[in-house]
Amino acid sequence: MIASLARPGSSPLHRLAAAPKLAGLAITATALFFVDDPRLLATAFALGLTVARSTGAHFAEIGRDLAGAAMALAVLGLADWLLVDGATALAVVLRLGAIALLAHAVTMTTTTAELFEVLERLFGPAERLGLIDAGRAALTLTLAIRFVPLIVEEAQAIREAQAARGLDGSVLALAVPLLVRVIVRSEAVADAIDARGFPPERAATAPPRPPAIRPEIEADTP
């Protein structure tokens, strides 16, 4: 499994349920796009820093997580300054910085499992609209999470093997075998999923179940 960016903790944000956190984030982020006053945006940025810090994460850790975003923001701020003006650049950097900090505070305090539950709740309405099959969508996500480390390892193994054969750094030498293996593997995975009784049957049509064989009971039988 891939390690989530969430960190264990018991801060107020950790204790808050996922849904209100996400709703709060969405409302705040949207509202910030209607704010142009640099003083208000600076306040929002300071608030973002406070909220992110309140999760128990140190500024150094937060900085490491958001390094990519910070760099992109710096480049864009610079471009804004040169192409538009300093005031706009400041507003954009403060606004996006504040949103990134708040969003990351939610990410840091919400486990993948909690977020998955919210996502599953969203699948319901989407299913009623005929957009997706909720059970299949959830299984697809789970399966992707399960197979990421396996396929990352496979990609690394292929690169090492190619390097040993002097094909170092060839995109073709990596991508072709990786994709062929994945396609073949996906067939076996699908067979296994079918063999294990997927898709689930409706409870009403379930036939009587065979009794479970319990080791304790068997151990008592002479």
């Binding site: 060839s170 990596l174 396609i183 999923i193 079918d194």
Partner: peptide, 28 residues
């Protein structure tokens, strides 16, 4: 979507993630 499609979709998503995880490769 058949189970086979489901498997392909999930594993191809994993490939997209994996390609982001392997170090960048210099092109020609």
């Amino acid at each position: 979507m058949t189970t086979r499609d489901l498997g392909l979709v999930a594993l191809m998503a994993a490939v997209i993630v994996a390609l982001g995880a392997v170090p960048a490769i210099p092109l020609a």
